[in-house]
Design a protein around this nucleic acid. Structure first.
Length: 877
RNA sequence: GCACGGGUUGGGGAGCGGUCAAACCCGCAGGGUUUAGGACCCUGUCGCUUAGUGCGUUCAACGGUUCAAAUCCGUUCCCGUGCACCA
């Protein structure tokens, strides 16, 4: 076999697609729209990695498939170009972030083009483009007008040597990443927040209707974390501090309170005597990251303050603790050590007294003897007038009591927090705000947008934007006096929350998007990306859609109708691909060595696209060899007429394969293509129409070589834009396929026996067909299955309920052993058993000579008992 | 710590209540072809057994539900992912 030069074929077609604008998508078309979107990448100088390639290949196959199925497909690409990693990488490479990012993007584009992806490049979006981030600023101002934006103090990681805020990932075990000797401090800064919690209820409710993977939906539900509970007013130093709890029934067991160590108002309650020990404790905090916090031991320190429990007037100590989340609820919890495990451990550690308030029914708990908290249900004790009540009822009663006394209320609480969008960094969208001594906080007027990032800044210490005086110093738009510009930039999740609205009109400088066009294309029909975005990006984007809807920009509720999560691709050793492990596979290297089509084919062969898979060099080799075979078979086979059997197989494949691709079961589709090619390679000739169909089936996965053969052998048009083959059900002949199967298995058996028994020349072959009763059993089961395809229902139909209850297992066993090759018999309609073997006999006689078909009943040979329907006993002389 | 996934026969990976000793790919073994290697084609690949075949034991571990469990439920162990300033 001659090696095919896939590489030159590929570059030829990639060039033609680009030159002829093959994949340009018109916003005006009568065809059904279909918007396929992959989560846009964060470009970096290291280029595409295998995870990207997998993501795009999955999406491209879907886009090509839909396009061929008559849809007007929108399939664009963009770059999430602003953000911390680019800024850091640029500094490291001694380049300006803007230049660095442009290089990265260009590099990405070249590599994506090499993958043969059918993007409409005319709709490219880059978030680093001022014409893009201008609209970030615009939306920020709209949100501000609408009251969705506010300022609040919040904790950040601070390095005193860098004189700057650190991201969680820049904190390594409590130290600054650049200064191993410098402890990270927790500072509180005034920052900008978006009220995502305004939409918590809707975000939560609408999860149900999304056609998303169940696990992503579960993760979002938990992230939003709706819970019902009671807000109870504790008094500290005459000031009321509302505290949220889901367990008001335990209120009489409260023996202390814990305030988050990151609480911005912590020092309002710390007494002068305790100030130094609290400060000492705060130094131990390693970062503001919750992950880090939880990894630490549960620790705390007494604040010196006492809180008054409103239900009984008791004074309990207030501790500062590292395990309470500052932004959840009120940043403070009431602690009941006897009935909450974390509180229990904390109380034991600091010798805080315990008081049992719930006992399991009929049992008595003694605080001193407890080794862990009791969190189950029970009856209240030590709870004044509530003692004796069941705790579930007491929850309600106690809440009502508190409400009546005006010291508490029933509330719904969400884990979801407001979105902190301020970043004290350079490479982001400047927040369009001006601080004026006279007028205070002044929004930048719309006409002054965009506030561009100044090119001239100094990196090193502090926020780089502060180093450009021209940027910082400005005039107040209200009163015209000197003012200071906001130097915080926006979280890049802001950029990625609405980019999917920009594609159809990516260069419009008048509006962020044209409402009518968006209405035509949105929501996204198929969104594709990794599960790591389950909670953050996908929630922010959903929030944005709803907020823009309420501002009158959109008229739909959810941005992404369907979501597909691709799995992770691991290195050949089963580990995550990483440079340090040396198991990284670079898609470009693979293309170089084999070809794009081979890479694409192999990538989808590995496993179901939604589950993790492991790279294999041998597998890659095998895919490549297979495509070589496909190429030679399809380009060399004579065009003439197809046999019935191959027609049947092709049409069956069209049917099943289309289903697989439609449902992202690419790995299963690939198996069907393999077996189809095996079958075709046995044929002498094939009809032009069938050849065309087969090429089209390969086209979404292997767009290049199919284009080549299509042009040379079928017609001079783009296969990528051709119509998907239709399955002709009437050509599917399972009976014929079954006979072929029977013949080939008989042939193998005969040859095998001939060799093993050392029979030189076959005189006679006796095919002993299964006894009549086995056939009858088959037809009974088959008929039952035909009416009721559910096998268990069919079985129930065969016997009474009692019989079934008793003997179902035996019947099953009978079917298994006696009718073991029943399988697809139920699908064969006009089926005559005797005919089957007579047909087989006719074919095999030309090979082996005299063959006789004998019914088991007419045969006293003991081996006849082994005769099975479709797998008969054989006697060879 | 909390949340969400997952553990299948040498490796990868389908299957997710009965058609399951479990698709397919790789690896390995035997045969064919070839000057040899490679490539290609065929066959085998849990154990025992048979000329064809049949039987036994399996799907992380242990328990449970069911006439029937790799598949459903519970517990345990192990692995992966996310946790709000990485995107």
């Amino acid at each position: 076999m001659v090696e095919v030069d896939f590489r030159s074929i590929e570059s030829k077609w990639q060039e033609r697609w680009e030159k002829e604008n093959t994949f340009f998508t018109s916003n005006d078309s009568n065809k059904k729209k279909f918007f396929v979107l992959e989560m846009f990448p964060y470009p970096s100088a290291t280029g595409l990695h295998m995870g990207h390639a997998l993501n795009y290949i999955i999406g491209d196959i879907q886009a090509r498939f839909r396009r061929m199925n008559g849809c007007n497909v929108l399939y664009p690409m963009g770059y999430d170009a602003l953000g911390l990693p680019a800024e850091n990488a640029a500094i490291k490479a001694k380049k300006h972030p803007s230049d660095y990012t442009n290089e990265s993007i260009n590099n990405f584009m070249i590599q994506q083009k090499a993958l043969g992806l059918s993007y409409d490049w005319s709709k490219l979006v880059k978030t680093s483009d001022p014409e893009y981030y201008k609209w970030n600023q615009y939306f920020f101002l709209k949100f501000l007008e609408k009251g969705l934006v506010y300022r609040k103090k919040s904790a950040v990681n601070w390095c005193s040597k860098c004189n700057t805020v650190l991201a969680n990932e820049q904190v390594h075990s409590g130290k600054c990443w650049r200064h191993e000797d410098t402890d990270v401090e927790i500072k509180h800064l005034e920052q900008w927040f978006i009220k995502t919690t305004n939409y918590a209820e809707e975000l939560n409710e609408m999860i149900e209707g999304l056609d998303w993977p169940a696990r992503i939906k579960a993760m979002q539900t938990n992230w939003i974390g709706k819970s019902f509970g009671t807000e109870i007013n504790f008094t500290i130093n005459e000031k009321v501090w509302p505290i949220f709890t889901t367990r008001p029934d335990t209120i009489f067991g409260v023996t202390f309170l814990v305030i988050s160590a990151q609480h911005s108002k912590l020092f309002e309650i710390v007494t002068p005597e305790q100030k130094s020990s609290v400060e000492e404790f705060l130094k131990k905090l390693r970062s503001v990251s919750e992950k880090e916090m939880d990894a630490m031991d549960k620790e705390g320190v007494f604040t010196g303050a006492y809180a008054i429990n409103p239900i009984n007037g008791e004074k309990v100590p207030v501790y500062a603790g590292n395990f309470v989340v500052a932004d959840y609820g009120s940043g403070m919890v009431m602690a009941v050590p006897t009935h909450d495990q974390r509180d229990f451990e904390f109380a034991k550690k600091y010798n805080i007294p315990l008081r049992v308030v719930i006992c399991p029914e009929g049992k008595k708990l003694v605080a001193e003897e407890m080794t862990c908290a009791y969190t189950g249900e029970g009856v209240l004790v030590n709870s004044n007038e509530f003692s004796g009540q069941k705790n579930v009822e007491a929850m309600k009663k106690i809440t009502e009591y508190l409400e009546k006394k005006g010291v508490g209320k029933k509330t719904i609480n969400f884990k979801l927090r407001d979105w902190l969008v301020s970043r004290q960094r350079y490479w982001g969208t400047p927040i369009p705000i001006i601080y004026c001594e006279k007028c205070g906080i002044v929004p930048v007027p719309e006409k002054d947008l965009p506030i561009k990032l100044p090119y001239e800044v100094t990196f090193g210490e502090g926020n780089p934007l502060l180093s450009n005086k021209e940027f910082v110093n400005c005039k107040c738009p209200k009163c015209g006096t000197s003012a200071r510009r906001e130097t915080d930039t926006m979280d890049t999740f802001f950029d990625s929350s609405w980019y999917y609205l920009r594609y159809m009109d990516a260069t419009n400088s008048e509006v962020p998007f044209v409402k009518e066009t968006v209405k035509k294309w949105l929501p996204v029909d198929q969104y594709i990306g990794g599960a790591e975005h389950a909670c953050m990006h996908l929630i922010y984007a959903r929030f944005f859609t709803k907020a823009l809807r309420d501002l009158g920009y959109l008229d739909f509720d959810e941005p992404f109708t369907k979501l597909f999560n691709q799995g992770m691709l691991h290195g050949a050793d089963g580990n995550k691909m990483s440079k340090s492990l040396g198991n990284v596979i670079n898609p470009l290297d693979v293309i170089e060595k084999y070809s794009t089509d081979s890479l694409r084919f192999n990538t989808v062969s590995l496993s179901a696209p939604n589950s993790d898979s492991v790279w294999s060099d041998n597998g890659m080799e095998s895919s490549h060899k297979f495509l070589q075979k496909v190429y030679s078979v399809l380009s060399e086979i004579k065009i003439g007429s197809s046999t019935k059997i191959i027609e049947s197989k092709i049409n069956k494949t069209i049917k099943e394969y289309s289903f697989d691709i439609d449902n992202f079961k690419y790995n299963l589709g690939v198996i069907k293509l393999r077996s189809l090619i095996d079958a075709i390679s046995q044929e002498q000739e094939i009809s032009k129409n069938d050849l065309e169909s087969v090429l089209k089936l390969f086209s979404p996965i292997c767009p290049h070589f199919t284009e080549e053969i299509f042009h040379t052998r079928i017609k001079n048009s783009m296969i990528s834009l051709e119509e998907w083959p239709k399955c002709d059900e009437s050509k599917i002949d399972l009976h014929l396929e079954k006979i072929e199967e029977v013949i080939s298995s008989l042939r193998v058996d005969i040859i095998k026996i001939k060799e093993l028994a050392k029979i030189e020349k076959v005189k006679k072959v006796k095919i002993i067909v299964a006894p009549q009763w086995k056939w009858e059993a088959i037809s009974v089961i088959r008929d039952a299955c035909k009416e009721k395809p559910d096998f268990s229902v069919a079985m129930k139909a065969l016997m009474s309920k009692e019989e079934y209850k008793k003997h179902g297992g035996e019947i099953q066993n009978f079917i298994k052993t006696t009718l073991s090759r029943l399988s697809d018999f139920s699908e064969i309609k006009p089926f005559n058993e005797v005919e089957l073997f007579n047909e087989a006999k006719t074919v095999l006689e030309s090979e082996f000579g005299s063959i006789e078909v004998v019914k088991a009943e007419d045969c006293n040979e003991p081996k006849a008992k082994n005769a099975f329907p479709t797998k008969p006993a054989l006697i060879i002389e």
